[in-house]
Nucleic acid binder design. Structure first.
Lengths: 303, 303
DNA sequence: CGATCTTACGGGATTCGTAAACATA
DNA sequence: TATGTTTACGAATCCCGTAAGATCG
């Protein structure tokens, strides 16, 4: 049973039922009285039921009208609720946004940003996947994440990849390490003699470093999964390590010293990846804007 | 927040969300593709939210669209339910009708009529008030009854009273009563010597009888409220009684005899009373029609 | 280049408001 | 007669369908 009903007609109907006067109801609906009368008559014709008993002196609901006015009121309320819900989402008062972020960014750079975001949009739920770069991309591609910060550039037609920031590398070692006494710019060659604690090969950080010094190799003494564990190992004196500058907060400890690596080709590029064929939801757009506002500047290094 | 949404637009939206193709969805909605496109765009503008991500090759819901499509589906279902409910009432598949009927009609004439009515309209609830004439009128006037069968004509502007049927009177007595041997037409004068069992003065039947013989009086030996009790008293030999012909079924007993009273001015008029300013509900109209179809004919007397 | 959505535009239906006719207390 | 609803009608608006244009794969 296909048929058309508009909220305007329902609202007119309910108003007339309440006012029991075409003149007053028409005024409330901002219509001339004859136009209002026609609207009601059309509604009655469409519904196939007389809704009002009209005499020139009184307007009263019929039995069918009394049945329908309850439905109409509920329908109008439901429509309002649905529209309010939609508007809440559009206005960023409600919603959900899922992102995927490299662990190296998720641990240090992200938390204050999310605190800021949540303070500004308390109704928006957040879902952060702190996963490795390939997984970040996969989540965007499958729609599980609205956008991602990853370090591998993927050329795919359905993905839009834009440069987000670039990150230099730092060397971290114990203050009693021989490098602490060395002056001048640090190069990869100067690191070669020293034992190095590194991340696992699956990490993009490790891949960057290996690519930069290829074909020569560093003297890897230990491979780990987590940067915080790396920090502990370096503090224990097992060796030095090379990490992106944005992750230095892991190594903020009185026993440790850090120095920038002056190797131009050794720069970690971080990309913001999102789907090309989908607009960001309002919630995602809000987070996107905050992310962009907190975008790390190359010159602004911690410590 | 005043705004207009039509089920047509919602249906178009849901169809497009399901088909993910303007061309297919337009065909399903019996619209040209450009018209359909405009409809969707208008809806998006009205809602103030983009509902679809469109590329020439794919049409996909936005996050807001996914939020709203659930609401839209539910709204459409609710509208359908409301319309079906209204149609059920209009089509007499559901509803409720309340009538008020004189007890003398309610006990004998009404039951088979209602059985017929219920068989034809099983979804309609019935509310029968078997009350005295004045109460019948009061119930119609206050709206507690859709219409009534009463015996007092009331001239009121808001009531429409039409003649329903007229009912002669019968005398009922025991077969061993002296009247049983009497030949010729029965007149009130012939009843005068005999003790009579009567209904209470509040009954319209009693009032009819008293008005007809005024200023003379009958020899009332007993006053009762219920006709069935009157029948018992007559069977016990306490006296004869005079009742409307339609109530004779109360006296259907081998010990009792009945004879018509040939008194032209002694006729009980039964009126159908309803409100003048209100149309009957579909359910009430249905019962009205059945009542009219079962209208007792003056010549068709039981027994 | 083919499929698909959007824009442009003329014709037709719908709907509006003013004015007059009509109905009831 | 006064109040309030319906009918009549010209005008503005909205909406539809055809045709042309734009876009992506």
């Amino acid at each position: 049973m296909q048929m058309n009903v508009s909220t305007r007609a329902l609202h007119a109907f309910v108003t007339l039922a309440e006012q029991r006067s075409f003149t007053r109801a028409a005024a409330l609906c901002h219509l001339s009285q004859p136009a209002f009368s026609a609207l009601i008559r059309t509604l009655e014709d469409d519904l196939g039921a007389r809704l009002f008993d009209r005499t020139t002196r009184s307007v009263e609901l019929t039995a069918e009208g009394r049945v329908f006015v309850e439905s109409a009121r509920r329908l109008l309320r439901d429509v309002d609720d649905a529209l309010a819900d939609l508007r809440d989402h559009a206005a960023r008062r409600r919603g959900r946004v899922a992102i995927a972020v490299l662990p190296s960014l998720a641990a240090g750079w992200l938390p204050p940003l999310l605190a800021d975001f949540h303070a500004r949009y308390p109704g928006i739920e957040l879902d952060v996947a702190d996963v490795l770069s390939d997984d970040c991309i996969a989540r965007v591609r499958s729609g599980r994440a609205d956008f991602a910060l990853a370090s591998t550039r993927t050329e795919a037609p359905e993905l839009r990849t834009e440069s987000f920031c670039s990150d230099g590398f730092h060397v971290v070692f114990r203050r009693d390490h021989p490098l602490a006494r060395q002056r001048g710019a640090l190069t990869l060659a100067r690191l070669a003699p020293h034992p190095i604690v590194q991340l696992a090969r699956s990490s993009s950080v490790r891949q960057y470093v290996e690519a930069a010094i290829y074909p020569s190799q560093l003297h890897t003494v230990l491979e780990l999964e987590q940067l915080s564990t790396v920090a502990g190992m370096v503090r224990a004196g097992l060796g030095l390590t090379v990490v992106p500058s944005l992750t230095l907060f892991h190594f903020d400890h009185p026993d440790l010293a850090t120095r920038a690596l002056h190797v131009p080709e050794l720069k970690r590029q971080v990309f913001l990846v999102r789907r090309n064929d989908r607009a960001l939801s309002s919630a995602a757009q809000a987070l996107y804007e905050v992310v962009m506002a907190h975008r790390p500047h190359p010159t602004a290094r911690k410590r």
